[in-house]
Amino acid sequence: MKIKEIEEEIVEEFALFGEDWEGKYEHLIDLGKSLRIIADELKTEGRLIKGCQSKVWLQSELKNGRVFYTADSDAIITKGLVALIVRVLGDHSPQEIIEADMGFIDRIGLTAHLSPTRANGLLSMIKQMKMDALSLSLKSKV
């Protein structure tokens, strides 16, 4: 599926909850449980994403021209947010990842997590995933 299509799918999924924030957050927490977890030995200082109040480790690799992410967080909701972003961006080409505008976050009512000062650091995660995609694509070309 294209990034846009996955975004639409998520928007529809979250729309089912309407104003029910509990349902929304429970769904997010569940999503976290499906995240492909980064191997423990890879949870190093270097793989920590800066700018989050909770710890988020991210590992990116390029396989057949597509980027795959594994990650983890010590906070449950943050983990759900990471899983959400990985679901959208993972398994796509670096170019597609770099160009994704991530507008769906606004539409599913999680905008609060996007503000630059927000401790969850969703913005930092997205930035790191895009930067990883870029550097992986550059490396693969040399």
Partner: peptide
């Protein structure tokens, strides 16, 4: 077993402002 941030986030959803970190 729980992160302060998670608790703070759910409290925020309930209109309760606390500090975490």
């Amino acid at each position: 077993g729980l992160h302060a941030l998670d608790i703070g986030t759910i409290l925020d959803q309930q209109g309760i402002a606390v500090r975490t970190g």
